[in-house]
Design a protein around this nucleic acid. Sequence first.
RNA 1: GGGCUCAUAGCUCAGUUGGUUAGAGCGUUCGGUUUACAUCCGAGAGGUCCCAGGUUCGAGCCCUGGUGAGCCCACCA
Length: 759
Amino acid sequence: MEKKYNHKDVEAKIYRMWEEKELFKAKVDPKKKPYCIILPPPNASGEMHTGNVLMIAIEDLLIRWKRLMGYEVLWLPGTDHAGFETQTTYERKLAKQGKSRLDFDRQTLYNNIWDFVHENKSLIENQIRQMGASVDWSRYTFTLDPFSLKLVCDTFEKMHADGLIYRGDYVVNYSFKWGTTFSDAETSYKEVSDPLYYIRYRLSDNSPSPKGEQEIVIATVRPETIFIDTHIAVNPKDENHSHLIGCKALNPITGHEMEIIEGSFVDPAFGTGIVKLTPAHDKDDFQVALAQDLPIINIIDLQGLITQGPQKGMTIKKARKSAVEQLKDLERIEKIDESYKHMVPVDYRSGDYIENLVLPNWFVKVDGLRNAALESIKNGEMKIYPKWRQLTYVRWLENMHDWAISRQVVWGIRVPVWYDSSKNPNISVTFLDSGGQAVSGTLSEILGSYTLKEVLSGLQTLRAPKNSEYVISQESPGENYVPETDTFDTWFSSGQWPLITLKYPDSEDFKYFYPTSVLETGWEIVTRWISRMVMFGIYLTGKPPFADVYLHGHVRAIDGRKMSKSLGNHIIPSDYIEQYGADALRMGLILGTAMGRDFNFPQDKILAFRNFANKIWNMARFMGVLEDNYNQEEGKELTIYSIDELKSLLQPKDIEILVGFDAMLKYVDSSLKKYRFADAANSIYQFMWKDLASDYLEDAKGRLDKDVALSVLRSVYLECLKVLHPFMPFVTEEIWQNLTAEKERPLAVQSWPKPYKMS
RNA sequence: GGGCUCAUAGCUCAGUUGGUUAGAGCGUUCGGUUUACAUCCGAGAGGUCCCAGGUUCGAGCCCUGGUGAGCCCACCA
């Protein structure tokens, strides 16, 4: 053995050995208890970040522990196509070449992204190997595999048949830049400064105010929508304004009468306490309009242009300026508050602006699914660790409203819907003609000049009005049909991930391993992902997809702030693997924190565990030296006795270390059961270094009954390797291979220690 | 606006249902190459457990109030 442990030479070699021997391939075995974790799929085109690394460290720890305990273990890896995120990454690449998605028909674009993803896919797979993850590669799954496509579409069909899917006009978050809808979960808010305009409205003579005022003033940041407004709201509890309810004001631009209605959402203290309603372009207003059956008028098209009125054809920004000019000319502006700051919706990744538009969309009715998901928590069928995170999950589910599942991106699973072109003349399409020129219009306009075949082969996007007639089918129902071009929200497919990976409903895997044992992931994904998996799992199988949910904390940068590329404080895990080894990185992260709490990247701990790897390496080496010396001094081969054989010869020091081992083992087991990984890790670490090396081994140097001491030392040391293996798999396996006979099974598939029971 | 979490050694953090002298890693001070390991060994210094009050025989831990930090959700024209 080398003087120093060199992880660089060892880790890749060991992983290859494990993989070649297929040690991690699960077999359905009814005689054994199953233990299953589905690896939360990293983005296919991504690179491993510290969150992934922590996740792998924890899951591999659980998986290897249970494998040694004798369970039939399955850890199933995969990657996610991450619809929108991947497409935007690809579009950025296109932009560098001076191109955009609009240069391609949807099929070509899809194929190009497919190639792009597969070029990059091996990167993340190799990083998973680098970490030592004992996953079953034979079951590797990608969210766009044929089985996945079929299951997701089958689920859609079933839900549609059960009345859980509907198509409706709804106010959605829409990005003009990316040309798609976003879910609420993908929308965040950013503070910006916009002028707040105070606009004077005359009251109509037909319904004068009881208090006799002639005018009211309304504050708005969106004067460009004024001309379509039909209603105004005040809070009924607002003493200054409630008398206005039922009165009518005149629209300052068009002069039409607008009724003043009550709205309990109106804050009397904000602005003037009076609000104009724009149901198509504001979520609150939309809800009021739905409840009170007010007209919903959309004046912004998908390019972000105003579709009617005096500002027709302008962008929102220009229209606003123009509307302000017009109002100034009409002397309707009382004042402009230039210092006003407010929160506007943006895409949570890119920070690009999002508008509220009313668009036809596919929706999931959440009411039918939510209660069962909540019930599984309340009755203990599914447990969340740490427990205090449960609240977030419950709150969120309780507040969840209907889920818009369609996205206008190409990269994803297409909604399996078709429209009969002859029955839906009002469907609007955009396609590239044979010369590559984009053509847009309704089917009835276009089919005069082009054949349907031409439209289909160059098809980019299609938008069907709410009441279009459609057929659900995964294949085209006939040559007269045009396909829906929307794809599913990524969470609609990843929400079915446990079912996709285990091949619901007929496979042996599914019957044996479902529900899985534990879902381990970051807490920030609770709402976006876990809630969906539970809802789909219960909907399709009657059971939540996992018994336990363990949520780890965020890894922050060394400076305690959130990691971000712009701050320059983000950490590249492979640098640490390179420098200190995957074992040290894993152990450092495991010991970095208590259960589920955020923590700073534990740089110095990783160093400490690199040293620890070297320490145990040298213990093994030294045991060899001691044994060689014994052979020379005694002139005979050292006999290694079992502890049973030595019972009557054991010295107090021997008993002490054996009893100590039992205590450590018990503590590790009970800590792991409770997901208290740091406690377990610290326990084996302290025992090996302090008790076994510094205390017992030092003492053994002076022992006269060397054969007894060396037998005890060897036994305890090997048992410790087993305990440490789930934490630091590479170095323990390498030492095991050095110390034990070649024909013995690798450490990864040995058995978990049993206590010595000396007392 | 609603909610969650945190505050313990110079730094980063453990401390389980209340129970002797509050721990670890890094850093720091002093001293060490005896049969492995300087990525080592031995010894030490270093804490008003954020503040105030309460419960208790006993509080870092439980309760109330405050201060400071971070985060999540919702979102007001």
